[in-house]
Design a binder for these strands. Structure first.
Lengths: 185, 185
DNA sequence: GAGCTTTATGCAACTAGTTGCACAACCAGC
DNA sequence: GCTGGTTGTGCAACTAGTTGCATAAAGCTC
């Protein structure tokens, strides 16, 4: 149950409407927790019902009407509670690894091309993160919040680095595989 | 939709009953694609209905009765198709990173202890993978299937290595954070 | 042979997330 | 002043995965 807390964090950083949140989930927050606008609207409704957020005064009636939310003290408390509460690490769960294992049984035909595509995508993502790092975290900035946010970005950078390296290694292995191993279905 | 294909792979490696599959998903396959016995039984039913697998002759009636499955040619073809079909890389999605970002807003109190726990768990997992590597992939083995399976294990090892390093780094950052940054809710 | 535990199979309900669509208001251009 | 795209909000249905429980048979223990 992370989405409500992702939204609380985003709203604490800056009160927003559903659409604004959606946009922010397409950028910064979405880099490690993506969400569609439907999920966000549904969750905003629940959070309001639970008394964790409320709509800012101003206009609120009817559809097609911009509605901005802000976090109430109960919401902040809930977020603090959740942040501190122990949670088990996510277990690894990746279809790509499954496909590799399947390839050991049915042959690697076709898989290689998709591996190349993945490599390219991860390289691009890595470049994008590095761009953000250069822009948002110059060496002199070191307020506590910046340090924590930088740490999160570092995780993204290091993960993309891992994937590009691993995929490169995998493709090298493929190249060394005997021809008959590459398709035997 | 990876579970059916995980099961097909497992059954191609060795025909099994639901319980045997469950056990294998608790070990090797489960390292990168976990599944509960309920998921497995449900999926076996579907795969059989679709004509991808069938029960081995022998005993098959009633509950509490062992039922073994084997893959039919259609199942193998489907697995080969799926393995070669392009799929987008999984997007990063980790509650831990979210909690770190939340901590930038509500303070890091409590989070540090859980980070330490994660570090310990990842270290343990890493040791386990390295143990498997030593046991199952001695330097002289290099049949194509072994190479591919080794590659998958390598991904696990490298990912756990990444997490231990990143968590170590994160904890070092926490230590350097000013006291007031550690809890301001 | 009555009861207890283990092995093996399975249903049903729930939670989280995705996809597809609907609809209202506003803002152009003509 | 209507037509057509864009912005903003939302419902409903579906898919994947989890949790909790039910049940049947086999074996063991006294």
């Amino acid at each position: 149950m992370s989405l409500p807390h992702a939204i609380l964090t985003a709203l604490l950083e800056k009160p927003s409407s559903g659409l604004e949140l959606t946009r922010r989930f397409d950028k910064s927050i979405g880099y490690f927790w993506s969400a569609t606008h439907q999920q966000i609207y549904r969750e905003l409704g629940k959070l309001e019902a639970e008394g964790f957020i409320r709509t800012l005064p101003a206009a609120q009636p009817a559809r097609g009407q911009k509605k901005s939310y802000e976090v109430l003290p109960a919401g902040r408390a809930e977020l603090a509670r959740w942040t501190a509460a122990p949670q088990d690490p996510k277990t690894l769960r990746d279809p790509l690894l499954l496909r590799l294992r399947a390839a050991a049984v049915v042959g690697t035909a076709g898989l290689e091309a998709d591996l190349r595509r993945h490599l390219e995508l991860h390289r691009r993502q890595l470049a994008e993160y590095q761009e953000i790092e250069k822009r948002d975290f110059p060496p002199d900035r070191d307020a506590p919040e910046d340090r924590l946010r930088h740490l999160v970005l570092r995780a993204g950078i290091d993960l993309e680095t891992f994937w590009t390296q691993w995929l490169t290694h995998a493709l090298a292995e493929f190249a060394g595989l005997p021809g008959e191993g590459r398709d035997r279905s």
